[in-house]
Design a binder for these strands. Structure first.
Length: 554
RNA sequence: CGGGACGUAGCUCAGCCUGGUCAGAGCGCCGCCUUUGGGAGGCGGAAGCCGUCGGUUCGAAUCCGACCGUCCCGACCA
């Protein structure tokens, strides 16, 4: 196929939009792949859509290979389906109404609709089923950002599995997991499988695929030795051991006027900040005041707290704190508090300095189990300097884009929607489900984040909009056409730059657009009948005969 | 939803503080000429209800208010 740049809608820009920060955002706009319509709303221009379709095709091939079937469900969804699962209350949902007042939602994802169809599965003989589609998702995001990184409307490949028992369901999950690795590998994007946040659902099986990048909303924590990877929200790190002061037989009050932070406390007492505790009172959804207690040098992980409490929570108000502790933030501690205390595992052994629940006073020598009875849980965010929980190696922290997510949720949707089947033993049972998502738009952003240089994008061949960018300079039109025909004849997709522009502009655009191979036909070609072949990634260039182009590039 | 910033030509921006020769620049675009292996040069030209509405004023891009929109930080994130 030969596309002529003179006829394409390929609006490249010399400047990036002023508000763009992420490299992928700047380059995809500058190179004419996408344009913004509104906050979090993007149009894929012809080149961008070509890349999107290439990624879709890779996904289709790999999902086809595991026996998944493609279908297409609608965007507009009767609200009743979402009421059945209780998800109609999620704040990110767009609600719409038709002229007769019937209510619909624009789906965030399609569990409800697909499970609705799974109700037609009657017998264990029809299982397992693996379905997927590429369909628009709409989310009323409070804050879209970073170009394609977080948007309000996007196409997702979402897949769903239905199985008769856990063994079979895990097999379906595993097939998808393996397929995902192949998909990301073929797309040329580095993505790491990590155990993801299970949050309030606790105990479900879920993995994220995180692509390290210059911009993103997740933090990927990895061991330098490659044996551990997790999202920072749930990652475990082995913290350093504190230097404890001398052990006391019982807690001892000490006056600490005006000292309200752990750093200040450690400095005031001349001790290691890791030998202090940080008290974070929270109020749960049902109104209880719970004391979350972590080490003075740590930060509380909200998702871990959510898992530990099995409930949402918010920081307690000053009034609630005073009522529950009789003191203000900065002097709070577990001793003498008659509510629930959740303490981080780091506090299990050793004596720490804690607030005395008396303004301006702290307690030295506070020991869990002796002086207070907490529930222990992992509550801390890993920090730079932590060691790997598997091998003790150093942990690295990278910003990353979540490009895929796989989830096993058993009967969570099939039960409320009544999607059951008759098993071999004659019993009616709920279908066991899993769902599997990939955002091709985020894959595009992640690839550009990982593969670009100062001049522009450097696409992997597998997803590049064209195989070859053929730059034809003035005077070489004839040999340029021969080169295009040779490449086309070899089955390659050619972007033929036949525009009446100066060479510099054409080369700059070619670098920006990022097709992996550039071929130049110019004045030199008229003399020896050869063209220049340049590798976009390495910049290596050599002269080849037009007749050899097909095999040189292919 | 809290905090901050911004909105002037297709793009990037100046002008606003101190209201009145203030509708501007560069790039891009159109025409002609020259030029043609890394974003050339000359001449000519088109193009903006200065985000919207209201207020102050003899007079508003400029001052004030409200609204709308966009971006950034945070909260949120199936």
């Amino acid at each position: 196929m030969i596309a002529r740049a003179s006829q394409l809608f390929l609006p490249t820009l010399r400047d990036a939009p002023a508000d763009a920060e992420a490299a992928s955002h700047k380059l995809l706009v500058r190179a004419g792949y996408v344009r913004q319509v509104g906050a979090g709303l993007w149009t894929y221009l012809p080149l961008g859509w070509t890349v999107h379709r290439k990624i879709e095709q890779i996904i289709r091939e790999e999902l086809g290979a595991i026996g998944a079937q493609e279908l297409l469900a609608p965007v507009l969804t009767p609200v009743e389906l979402w009421e059945a699962t209780g998800r109609d209350k999620i704040p990110e949902i767009f609600h719409v109404t038709d002229r007769a007042g019937r209510r619909f939602v624009l789906p965030l994802t399609h569990e409800e609709t697909i499970t609705f169809h799974a109700r037609e599965i009657r017998s264990y003989r029809e299982l397992p089923q693996l379905w997927y589609h590429f369909q628009i998702k709409d989310r009323d995001e409070p804050r879209p950002r970073g170009g394609l990184l977080r948007v309000r409307e996007f196409i997702m490949k979402d897949g769903y599995s239905f199985d008769r028992d856990e063994e079979s369901a895990f097999a379906s999950f595993e097939k998808n997991r393996v397929a995902y690795h192949r998909i990301f590998e073929r797309c040329g994007v580095e993505a790491h499988e990590v155990r993801a946040e299970s949050g309030i659902m606790g105990g479900e099986l879920t993995f994220d695929f995180l692509a390290p990048s210059g911009s993103g909303e997740n933090t990927l924590v990895r061991c330098e030795r490659g044996d551990y990877a997790a999202d920072a929200e749930i990652a475990r790190g082995i913290p350093r051991t504190p230097e404890f002061p001398e052990t006391l037989a019982a807690p001892e009050e000490i006056e600490t006027p005006g000292v309200t932070t752990c750093e200040a406390l450690a400095a005031f007492l001349g001790i290691d900040v890791a030998a202090t505790t940080k008290a974070m009172p929270v109020t749960t959804d049902d109104g209880r005041v719970v004391l979350a207690l972590i080490r003075g040098d740590d930060r509380l992980s909200e998702s871990k707290l959510l898992s530990a409490l099995r409930s949402g929570s918010r920081p307690s108000t000053d009034d609630e704190i005073r009522g529950a502790f009789g003191a203000s933030g900065g002097s709070l501690g577990p001793v003498g508090f008659n509510g629930e205390v959740v303490a981080d595992e780091t506090l299990r052994t050793g004596q720490f300095v804690a607030g005395a629940n008396r303004d301006g006073w702290h307690l030295r020598g506070v020991e869990a189990g002796r002086d207070y009875e907490p529930q222990f849980a992992d509550l801390r965010e890993p920090i730079e300097g932590d060691r790997c929980p598997e091998c003790g190696g150093a942990l690295t922290f990278e910003t990353a884009i979540e490009v895929g997510h796989i989830f096993y949720f058993a009967g969570k949707y099939s039960t409320p929607l009544g999607a059951t089947f008759l098993d071999e033993d004659g019993q009616e049972k709920p279908l066991l489900g899993g769902s599997y998502g990939i955002g091709p738009g985020r894959v595009i952003a992640a690839i550009v984040e990982q593969k670009h240089d100062d001049q522009g994008i450097v696409w992997p061949r597998s997803v590049a909009p064209y195989d070859v960018h053929l730059v034809v300079l003035k005077g070489a039109e004839e040999i340029g056409e021969e080169a295009a025909a040779a490449l086309d004849g070899a089955g390659l997709d050619v972007l033929l730059d036949d525009r009446d522009l100066r060479p510099g502009e054409k080369f700059a655009d070619a670098d920006l657009i990022g097709v992996p191979v550039r071929v130049t036909a110019g004045r030199k070609s008229l003399e020896d009948g050869m063209v220049d072949l340049r590798d976009r990634a390495s910049g290596e260039e050599r002269r080849v005969k037009v007749a050899d182009l097909g095999k040189e590039v292919g």
